[in-house]
Design a protein around this nucleic acid. Structure first.
Length: 354
DNA sequence: TCTGGGGTCCTAGGACCC
DNA sequence: TCTGGGGTCCTAGGACCC
């Protein structure tokens, strides 16, 4: 029995939220991301609107390049408070229409609407209904993909952007002409590796021997093979607890000044500690991530035999792990706690924390 | 072109235990 | 006098996603 799965994806979400609260932005090229600092900024573009895309700007592009492409764009720092508030409203709308619901970040979600609709035609009517409600209440547009599983619906929602609905009844004929890069989990590396095997489209992937794919990619090869036939998970469910809390910082200029590095570790560790308090969890592992001037990235970690929660432990452990890189030019420092435990009840935690 | 920040999952080797 | 095999945990790196 086939399910009917929606993937709802907000169009240029961050930029669109900014345009709603600031009418002056209408028609302008809007880029959300780090500070371009007259072209010297070190970050990347998080999102931009279609006006900015017309200049060739896109997400993940170095902000310095975006600045060069159009200096007259409006460059904004992300306002996550605003996006979270709007996101909560949208998710409430989506939940209402679905049997099961799975939020994927601030701006997208999967909906299992099996049982809520009679057939494909009915599903399309529901998709319009959802789009209308979001448009009425939040003045935002989204794109919706409809198919029998999450894999295909996600690709479908991207197929007719912005403000589109794409209904896929035949997974194979929809997927075969598309590039393998469209498959969830296929990034630049796998794309290149597949190209070397003579595979560029999903149709070519489907025609390639499953055994050879497993030989080349391990269990990921099996996933690739199934995906190419349009087979994917239709299990929609809210995700469980997070498995790590992390925070990182890129220096404006690479630094070998460990007084500075230690100071940043203190700040980051404190924020991670605060989050762990808010979320009432303890942790067993502390890790650091260090990126040097040449972009080479290293991680070091320490796991304790029992769950920890002391305030100073994160910073102390992180500083100890970072010592190895003394004298090196550091570009980025990050700290993470993982192996989290949420099981302690509040009473126990009160003695434990803060 | 010069590459953020917050995450997840997978792999592979080594230690250690029985 | 030359060393099995299964299981689990830890560590480090890497690919990928939003």
């Amino acid at each position: 029995m086939n399910k009917i799965i929606f993937h709802v994806d907000m169009d240029c979400f961050f930029a669109a939220c900014e345009e709603v609260v600031n009418k002056d932005l209408k028609g302008k090229s809007v880029v959300i991301g780090s500070d371009p600092k007259e072209g010297k900024g070190r970050g990347v573009v998080a999102t931009c609107n279609y006006a900015a895309r017309a200049y060739g700007i896109h997400s993940a592009m170095p902000i310095s390049k975006a600045y060069r492409l159009n200096k007259n764009s409006v460059f904004l720092r992300p306002n996550f408070k605003l996006y979270s508030r709007v996101s909560t409203n949208i998710m409430l709308i989506l939940k209402k229409y679905s049997l099961n619901f799975q939020k994927m970040g601030l701006d997208e979600a999967y909906l299992d609407v099996t049982g809520k609709v009679e057939d494909w035609a009915d599903a399309k009517i529901l998709a319009y209904k959802i789009k209308n409600e979001i448009s009425d209440k939040e003045k935002l547009t989204c794109s919706i993909g409809i198919s029998s599983n999450k894999l295909v619906s996600k690709i479908a929602s991207d197929f007719n952007k912005p403000d589109g609905i794409t209904l896929v009844k035949n997974n194979r004929s929809f997927l075969y002409p598309l590039k393998v890069r469209k498959l969830y989990g296929v990034g630049p590396r796998s794309e290149q590796k597949l190209k070397k095997l003579g595979i560029e489209s999903i149709g070519e992937l489907a025609n390639f021997s499953k055994e050879k794919l497993i030989e080349n990619f391990g269990t990921f090869g099996l996933y690739l093979s199934l995906s190419s036939f349009g087979e994917g998970s239709d299990f929609v469910s809210s995700m469980g607890e997070r498995s790590s809390i992390s925070k990182e910082h890129t220096f404006m200029e690479d630094s070998d000044d460990f007084v500075k590095v230690d100071k940043i570790i203190d700040d980051i560790a404190f924020e991670i500690f605060s989050t762990s308090c808010q979320e009432k969890c303890t942790f067993k592992t502390v890790s650091i991530k260090i990126r040097l001037h040449d972009f080479k990235t290293y991680t070091r970690s320490k796991t304790f035999s029992v769950y920890q929660s002391e305030k100073s432990l994160i910073a102390d452990t992180a500083k100890l792990l970072a010592k190895e890189f003394l004298g090196k030019k550091i570009r980025l420092i990050g700290v993470k706690v993982s192996s989290l435990d949420f099981s302690k009840d509040q009473k126990v935690l009160k003695e434990y924390l803060c």
